[in-house]
Design a protein around this nucleic acid. Structure first.
Length: 105
DNA sequence: ATTCTGACATCCA
DNA sequence: ATGGATGCCAGAA
């Protein structure tokens, strides 16, 4: 059994985010036991598995990711498509309202 | 409000 | 294998 890579850990969590719910980078990093690795989580999001619902992951301000494929508008659309209300001007959502934690944590 | 730094994994040459 | 650069962040001044 190989040691779980950081990348695998992040992918595993993102993969489990239910539709219509959101998680923050720092939140995921905290689940991994290192709140400071938030940016590393974002890096995995970019170079990780594109099939994962990265659109359910936002920054701690509930704002869309600037580097999301198609830009923040695309990210906004993807999230709204799942029933999450997003402010079209600030590209922000009520993170407190949609925040979700894995049952495993 | 804006700006800078700190910290960390992954990428490219 | 090594070093330097990158980036979907967070926190503090």
């Amino acid at each position: 059994m190989t040691e779980p890579n950081f990348r695998g850990q992040v992918e595993e969590i993102v993969q489990q985010i239910p539709r219509g719910h959101l998680m923050a980078y720092g939140q995921i990093a905290t689940l991994l036991g290192a709140p400071r690795k938030a940016q590393a989580v974002g890096f995995v999001a970019h170079y990780g598995d594109p099939d994962l619902p990265w659109h359910r992951v936002v920054n701690r301000h509930g704002r869309m990711a600037p580097g999301y494929p198609g830009g923040m508008p695309a990210h906004r659309t993807a999230v709204e498509s799942e029933g999450v209300a997003v402010d079209p001007e600030e590209f922000t959502c009520d993170l407190e309202r949609y925040r979700w934690w894995p049952p495993d944590a």
